[in-house]
């Protein structure tokens, strides 16, 4: 198993007082899609900017495919691509020209350059609008153009900072579909920051939650959801009356957190609904309680997020983030 990103004890202090990162440790496997979740101001973007060699950490180490991001930054830049949160294409030239300029900046050899650009445009579904000015593009198209730019050098890792911020659901879906097919074709590792829990849930292999500059949770979406240990089994009963001793029996099971009954609704909160259901069902049947309907509610990533990083998000993200989102909306992002 190759390790794509390794981070040890990373600290970043801004202007001597703001601790944006406070000892971050992280490992990302090659070929994974890795989602970094965190409330505003938790250090997501700072971490990504250090990993992409934009600036140096105050202390600690980080490496990309074994290359130290501080000492061997030039080599790191050859294997990574990065799509910043803000718009990163020139709007007063065409989409094709943007790719051409970036291809030249990236030093792509001139033979086959046109082919690479055409492939990138097709890959992102932009071939029909390639010669239009970027000004005329929609937010989703601009995002896809940026992805196309990032793919020109066939990176081993693609860093995406809030890749779908401000896009409508359809545009988000298209961006992700294109991204997934690119990832499959070139076996690229993808590392992305997001606020959208559903994206992390659907598209990522592993998730880390960062809060106040520290990693608070790490695992697959399922592991994270299970870690909450709060799943609800809801029974709709045919009869309103349930004997007190039945409730007592259910409550006494060690995997049951608590039981609530109101009218014909019996809610049993357990650690793992899938294994608990047959046991509870058995009790109900033995005691002659007839059940009309059963449903299970498993925690979503939102619940996970709120549990581990909920406190700070209530304080809001500060004016900078708001300004960023607003300014993007001005540029046709939203």
């Amino acid at each position: 198993m190759t390790i794509a990103i390794e981070v040890n004890g990373l600290v970043k202090v801004y202007s001597g007082k703001v601790r944006a990162l406070d000892g971050v440790n992280l490992k990302v496997k090659a070929g994974d899609v890795f989602a970094l979740l965190g409330p505003n101001g938790s250090g997501k973007t700072t971490l990504m900017r250090i990993l992409t060699t934009q600036f140096k950490p105050t202390s600690g180490e980080a490496s990309i495919f074994g290359l130290d991001v501080i000492r061997r930054d030039a080599e790191v830049r050859k294997v990574i691509s990065y799509v910043p949160q803000e718009m990163s294409v020139w709007t007063d030239i065409s989409g094709y020209e943007n790719l051409l300029i970036y291809a030249k900046i990236y030093g792509l050899p001139s033979t086959g350059r046109t082919k690479v650009i055409r492939e990138a445009l097709e890959g992102m579904g932009l071939d029909s609008v390639a010669d239009n000015l970027v000004k005329t593009y929609s937010g989703g198209m601009i995002r896809r153009l940026e992805m196309a730019c990032a793919m020109l050098i066939r990176p081993r890792i693609l860093f995406l900072d809030e890749p779908t911020l401000g896009l409508d659901p359809t545009a988000r879906k298209v961006v992700w579909e294109k991204l997934v097919s690119f990832k499959k074709e070139f076996d690229t590792t993808v590392f992305f920051n997001t606020h959208y829990m559903d994206e992390a849930d659907i598209y990522s292999d592993e998730i880390a939650i960062i809060d106040r500059g520290r990693m608070v949770k790490f695992g697959t979406a399922d592991e994270l959801k299970h870690s909450i240990k709060k799943e609800v089994i809801q029974f709709i009963l045919t009869n309103h009356i349930v004997a007190e001793n039945v409730l007592k029996m259910i409550r006494s099971m060690d995997f049951v957190s608590y039981v609530i009954i109101s009218n014909s609704e019996l809610n049993v909160v357990v650690k793992d609904a899938e294994t608990a259901l047959p046991v509870v069902m058995e009790i109900l049947r033995n005691e002659g309680v007839s059940v009309k309907k059963i449903s299970m509610t498993r925690p979503t990533l939102d619940d996970v997020f709120l549990k581990y990083a909920g406190a700070i998000s209530l304080q809001g993200g500060g004016i900078r983030e708001i300004k960023q989102i607003r300014s993007m909306s001005g540029k046709g992002y939203i």
């Binding site: 900017r49 992409t52 060699t53 934009q54 030039a74 830049r77 050859k78 990574i80 691509s81 990065y82 799509v83 910043p84 949160q85 803000e86 718009m87 990163s88 294409v89 020139w90 970036y102 900046i105 990236y106 030093g107 730019c149 050098i153 860093f159 300014s327 540029k331």
Partner: peptide, 14 residues
């Protein structure tokens, strides 16, 4: 700098 172009240029292999 306000947009992301500068950041992207910094991460370019140049």
């Amino acid at each position: 700098r306000e947009t992301g172009i500068l950041k992207k240029l910094l991460v370019a292999p140049a």
